[in-house]
């Protein structure tokens, strides 16, 4: 069989087909709300974030200090053993300079970019990282391997969320020098 010998289905629509009513569409926004329970491990993690601390969980069999914490070790397949506080510093494992919002809309020219990064947290086992964002940094000076520190909300403003850490900022150098500098792409 050769594809070229068949009349293939799939009819491309243009925006004008929709605008002119050639195709009828029905739009709906489902109104659903969810309340996710934190669970045992993440519940404690969030509680400690509210206290301005990062907590991990240790498996005494493989020795891993795991973040985010978990009540069972997925590798040893057994219950984890103890809570371990980590530092609120870490190392940038990788990062991006993102011009796009979650819904694919674009960040307007001149406004700050999203600066997502994977941060390996000091005090957890090597390679144990979390997703967070960078701040107070010149985007052009972000480097893989850069040491960073959590910038916390004020105690009264924390609510037990990963966003109680506003962002991670460089421990030294690479700080943003002037607020006027635009965070353009590379």
């Amino acid at each position: 069989m050769e594809l070229g010998k068949f009349k293939l289905g799939g009819t491309q629509l243009k925006q004008s087909d929709i605008d002119r009513g050639k195709v009828l569409t029905l739009a709906q926004t489902p109104d659903l709300e969810y309340a996710w329970d934190d669970g045992v491990a993440i519940g404690r993690y969030l509680e400690e974030l509210k206290n301005g601390k990062i907590i991990a969980r240790k498996c005494n069999k493989c020795g891993r200090i795991m973040i985010p914490p978990r009540m069972f070790c997925e590798l040893c397949w057994r219950a984890t053993d103890e809570w371990v506080y980590c530092k609120d510093t870490g190392t940038v494992n990788t990062y991006s300079l993102c011009h796009v919002n979650w819904d694919a809309s674009r960040i307007p020219e001149g406004e700050p970019l999203h600066l997502p990064a994977l941060i390996h947290i000091d005090g957890a086992s090597p390679g144990m990282g979390i997703l967070h964002v960078l701040g107070e940094v010149d985007p052009d000076r972000i480097k893989i391997g850069m040491k960073v520190k959590a910038v916390w909300k004020k105690p009264g403003e924390r609510e037990g969320s990963i966003t109680d850490i506003m962002h991670f900022k460089p421990l030294r150098a690479a700080r943003k020098k002037s607020k006027k500098k635009k965070s353009g792409g590379r």
Binding site: W102, I130, L131, T163
Partner: peptide, 8 residues
């Protein structure tokens, strides 16, 4: 632990 950061 992640959605609150508005990831894409």
């Amino acid at each position: 632990t992640e959605q609150a950061l508005d990831p894409t």
